[in-house]
Design a protein around this nucleic acid. Structure first.
Ligand code: FES
Ligand code: FES
Lengths: 144, 144
DNA sequence: TTATACCGGACCGCTGTGGTCCTGTTTGCC
DNA sequence: GGCAAACAGGACCACAGCGGTCCGGTATAA
């Protein structure tokens, strides 16, 4: 089905919400705002923080803050953050020795253009595009 | 990782081989030619036959035959055959009621352009492209 | 000092996938 | 007419990955 993980979907939702609200938002707050279970939201945020898409501020009155406006955040980045590198095949881009049939394999390495095509398609769409006109707040609008 | 199933990979390999050899090939023969385990090849072929990409001929001297030249077989078709419809999100294209958060969800239905982009990218590449110059035989070359 | 909220990880049930196998059924050939 | 080859259509199981939850630790503001 070529489906990407639910976590990624949640990530987009959370990011969209974060962008719409602006400023610093707490995980429980975002959970309430998006309707996603709170532990899950926390997990997503943690992952995103790891990849410098959001920044966590600890302590009371803490929360998460976007590190980039949503329009500068291509979808591919988010996917890569949560799902890992974008590569369609098991016999990955330049990884040799992964498949035992690579000697006789006719399509050895030929997946690269496909990967590239997908990656480009994903890089051309920002979270702002996904969030759509819902983003009426804060610095995203100010930047416009 | 946005990875597609190994079966799909095998399908492409088998199809490439089938196109390279031309005519009717048996599953064991293709297994030997590709280096993929024979039961797996059989499984793949059966699925492909179900979707009218190849045609199975039963009985002794039977085998499988391509129903279309590889250059008329976009990658999206093969993927769709093996993995099912191409849709990235859990909250699928027009499927409502699947997600409990769809009321508050900010990106409700916004994945469609992404899906479309992916689908287009995948439709623009044929198996012949993946098989590359290896396709030197039969009617694929004759069509050229 | 205390409450809040992030941080880092461990943990488990479930689904889907990869892979094998077995029982028909069809068809060509001896 | 009988036999072997090869497809058809399942059932079947082991495994990995994912979704989702929870807990102990730490930083920080009131
Ligand atoms: S299938 Fe593994 S190298 Fe081609
Ligand atoms: S996450 Fe399910 S409707 Fe948006």
């Amino acid at each position: 089905m070529l489906r990407l993980s639910k976590l990624t979907d949640y990530a987009v939702v959370v990011l969209a919400r974060l962008g719409a609200e602006g400023g610093v938002q707490t995980a429980p707050g975002l959970a309430a705002g998006t309707g996603v279970a709170e532990p899950t939201v926390a997990k997503v945020l943690k992952i995103l923080a790891h990849h410098d898409l959001v920044e966590g501020q600890r302590g009371a009155r803490g929360g998460y803050r976007l590190m980039r406006p949503l329009r500068d955040m291509p979808l591919s980045t988010v996917i890569a953050a949560i799902e890992g590198p974008i590569a369609l095949t098991a016999c990955v881009d330049n990884g040799f020795g992964s498949c035992e049939a690579e000697g006789v394999c006719a399509v050895r390495g030929r997946w690269d253009p496909v990967n590239r095509a997908i990656r480009d398609a994903l890089a051309g769409i920002t979270i702002a595009d996904l969030a759509g006109p819902t983003v009426h707040a804060s610095f995203s609008a100010a930047a416009e």
